[in-house]
Amino acid sequence: MRRALLAITGLAAGTTALVVLKGAPDTMVAARDLPVDRPPVVPSGTGPTATPPVTPTPSRTRKSPNPSRTTAEDSADPRTTTRPPTTRAAPRTPDAPRTTSAAPKPTRRTVTGPVVENEYGNVQVRITLDGRRIVDATALELPRETAQSDRRSSEVDGRYSGTSGQVVQRQSAEVDTVSGATATSGSYRQSLQAALDRAR
Results as ranks from 00 to 15, higher is better:
residue 32 R to G: 07
residue 32 R to P: 00
residue 32 R to L: 12
residue 33 D to K: 15
residue 33 D to Q: 14
residue 33 D to W: 05
residue 34 L to M: 12
residue 34 L to E: 09
residue 35 P to I: 04
residue 35 P to S: 02
residue 36 V to R: 13
residue 36 V to F: 11
residue 38 R to Q: 15
residue 39 P to I: 05
residue 40 P to R: 13
residue 40 P to D: 13
residue 41 V to W: 03
residue 42 V to Y: 04
residue 42 V to I: 10
residue 43 P to W: 03
residue 43 P to L: 14
residue 44 S to A: 15
residue 45 G to R: 08
residue 45 G to Q: 05
residue 46 T to S: 11
residue 46 T to I: 15
residue 47 G to R: 09
residue 47 G to I: 06
residue 47 G to T: 06
residue 49 T to L: 11
residue 51 T to W: 01
residue 52 P to H: 03
residue 52 P to A: 13
residue 52 P to Q: 07
residue 53 P to Q: 09
residue 53 P to L: 13
residue 53 P to I: 13
residue 54 V to F: 09
residue 55 T to Q: 13
residue 55 T to H: 10
residue 55 T to C: 05
residue 56 P to I: 11
residue 56 P to H: 06
residue 56 P to S: 10
residue 60 R to W: 03
residue 60 R to M: 07
residue 60 R to T: 13
residue 61 T to Q: 09
residue 62 R to G: 07
residue 62 R to N: 09
residue 64 S to V: 03
residue 64 S to F: 01
residue 64 S to C: 07
residue 64 S to Y: 01
residue 65 P to M: 03
residue 67 P to C: 05
residue 68 S to K: 13
residue 68 S to D: 14
residue 68 S to N: 12
residue 70 T to Q: 02
residue 70 T to A: 06
residue 70 T to N: 04
residue 71 T to V: 12
residue 71 T to G: 04
residue 72 A to L: 09
residue 72 A to M: 05
residue 73 E to G: 02
residue 73 E to D: 12
residue 75 S to R: 14
residue 75 S to L: 15
residue 76 A to H: 06
residue 76 A to E: 15
residue 76 A to Q: 14
residue 77 D to R: 10
residue 77 D to G: 05
residue 78 P to A: 10
residue 78 P to R: 12
residue 79 R to T: 12
residue 79 R to F: 10
residue 81 T to G: 11
residue 81 T to I: 14
residue 82 T to N: 08
residue 82 T to A: 15
residue 82 T to W: 03
residue 85 P to A: 13
residue 86 T to E: 13
residue 87 T to Q: 13
residue 89 A to Q: 09
residue 90 A to F: 01
residue 90 A to Y: 00
residue 91 P to C: 01
residue 92 R to E: 08
residue 92 R to H: 03
residue 93 T to Y: 04
residue 93 T to C: 01
residue 94 P to W: 03
residue 97 P to A: 15
residue 97 P to Q: 05
residue 98 R to F: 08
residue 98 R to V: 15
residue 98 R to M: 10
residue 100 T to L: 10
residue 101 S to W: 04
residue 101 S to H: 04
residue 102 A to H: 02
residue 102 A to W: 00
residue 103 A to N: 02
residue 103 A to Y: 00
residue 106 P to M: 00
residue 106 P to I: 00
residue 107 T to Y: 00
residue 107 T to E: 03
residue 107 T to S: 06
residue 108 R to N: 01
residue 108 R to P: 00
residue 109 R to L: 01
residue 109 R to T: 02
residue 110 T to D: 08
residue 110 T to G: 02
residue 111 V to N: 02
